[in-house]
Design a protein around this nucleic acid. Sequence first.
DNA 1: ACGATATGAATGAATG
DNA 2: CATTCATTCATATCGT
Lengths: 214, 214
Amino acid sequence: MEPQQQQQPLNNEDSGSGKGGFLCRQSSTRWTPTSDQIRILKELYYNNGVRSPNAEQIQRISARLRQYGKIEGKNVFYWFQNHKARERQKKRFTSDPPPPMQRPGFVPNGSSTWKPDDHSFYSKCPTISPGVVSSASTLTVGQMGNYGYGSVTMEKNFMDCSISAGGGTSSTGVGGSTLHHHNFGWVGVDPYSSSPYALFDKRKVFDESLLQGD
Amino acid sequence: MEPQQQQQPLNNEDSGSGKGGFLCRQSSTRWTPTSDQIRILKELYYNNGVRSPNAEQIQRISARLRQYGKIEGKNVFYWFQNHKARERQKKRFTSDPPPPMQRPGFVPNGSSTWKPDDHSFYSKCPTISPGVVSSASTLTVGQMGNYGYGSVTMEKNFMDCSISAGGGTSSTGVGGSTLHHHNFGWVGVDPYSSSPYALFDKRKVFDESLLQGD
DNA sequence: ACGATATGAATGAATG
DNA sequence: CATTCATTCATATCGT
């Protein structure tokens, strides 16, 4: 990447405190990552091999990053998406590597897309005590955030090994619950639905089942 | 990042005279297309209707343009991106009649994050003349006809719902008894693919504003 | 020398 | 995951 390393007059954090009600340049709607946030994100990306974090990871990451400035989960999500995509893209039109052709008979990857995400090549869980790791399998999302050694420079720890967590991939392991993962309660109106009755189309929102996480 | 200026002030290559070592005009901060390169690019753009060349085309174009000066794939990529964007932007101000009302002073911002998406649909109908071969010569990247983009304008400003942590099924939902950490932000995200848009429908509401745990 | 404008570069956000 | 759009920043270029 481009050596863009320097800090500028971070003017984020803004929030026009409603000075008068008019004027007040409403900061852009767009997230403006701070240097620290960027630094951490890159850390995660390069040092921890995080590339496509899932919801939980995103939650933790954004929570951690929030210390350095306003940020939402989607920002983290997009950041990784973009960073990854750009890296690939740049490489794509920078050189003309012939399409990766695998020799027949050798199935590189059946159907599952290998995710270099966490638990990939880098040995993770650096700061996690072995004993504690086990608990990670269930869910460590608590907020181990930054304890002791953590400090600001050490953020890889919270990334840890969450992969096992409920098999982010196969949540079906829910067990007794016959709950289907099909009940996303998306609220919001349908911009396309010109049909008034389409209102009931969607399984309306707010499914208590979803809320009652427990 | 936004407010952050990315270009690092690399100061090498003193073009001035021994100034001492302060500011200097480095020669290669940014690509400066030559007349020939511009000419060809414009030809591709206007005569061949190339708007968003893909990796392969970019490679060919840059290779061809390299005859006229140093150039990289990304330069071509950005050139088309910018050219297209500016053309559109410009058109938006000129030929686009001022929409009724909305005068400065009217602050739409109120409760929901106003989304400045004014995907004005306009038929950009390029002015390329079919049959015109021009002198594109060797380059055959022309892909006229793909200026679709006239997508419909759809407002998806409904990304607001509630925090129905669909996580129920997600990894966190492991074991019926395991605690469910609901702090989920995005509604309707598919935990399996961690992609907010992985929904069956095209809706992809992810919201996270309610998040504020820590 | 500036100030304005044109434009290369970067990146957040979104779509398919 | 690839592609695209919008926005913004930084700088090159031009005008006065």
